[in-house]
Amino acid sequence: MKLGLVVDLDTCVGCHGCATACKQWNTSGTIGPLSDENPYGRDPNGAWLNRIRTYEVDDSPNSKTVNMPLSCMHCEDAACVTVCPTGASYKREEDGIVLVDQDKCMGCNLCSWACPYGARELDPDQGTMKKCTLCVDRIYDEKLPEQERKPACVLTCPTKSRLFGDFDDPDSEVSVAVRERSGKALMPELGYNPTNKYLPPRNKAVVQTYEVDKSVIGTLKSWANRVIAR
């Protein structure tokens, strides 16, 4: 199995709902707490496992606003696991989820340096590294109804822009979406083979326009039309 997420950049509205649901679930999950420093002060700072940034692509009038949530890509060649000196960072054989064993981490930050996606953040209070767990404590929980065995971010997304599934299964929702919408990996040139994929915005429907008749008669006609309309 190769579990991961697909984010639809066409429909994401940048509401930060996924990040908030993630923080809410994971602060009391297996790697919790996700501490904050100065949460109600001027400069709140804390560990988040998902962050949303907004970009403008291309120049006006062809520009498009794109909201891009970024969390752990659960890379196939995860450098964060290789560099870890304590063995706290590991990638699960059975489903490819990359996790941090909170009891082993010494807080040296090296894995966060090795991650190109900014997916790892040091907990300011615990002194250990926190990262997306793909809600490993939800997706296998048989006490939950089957449709709720998904990561918190996927369940909460109001525009259904986040898909969760097995990339090894060619007929899964995620594999089909990536195939049909040409899903992309971010920074593929670094060679980490990220599992998560991003669906680019669809082409906008072409708006019907009309040819304007610029001949003398045409101008006269349109002038007459405007005068009569008044």
Partner: peptide, 25 residues
């Protein structure tokens, strides 16, 4: 290459946070 939009100019409009984060520090 970071955002996947390789055929046009990309600009950051909003970083999504008002204060510093672990990443910016």
């Amino acid at each position: 290459t970071a955002t996947g939009f390789t055929q046009a100019k990309v600009r950051l409009l909003d970083a999504g946070h008002t204060a510093d984060t672990f990443l910016t520090n």
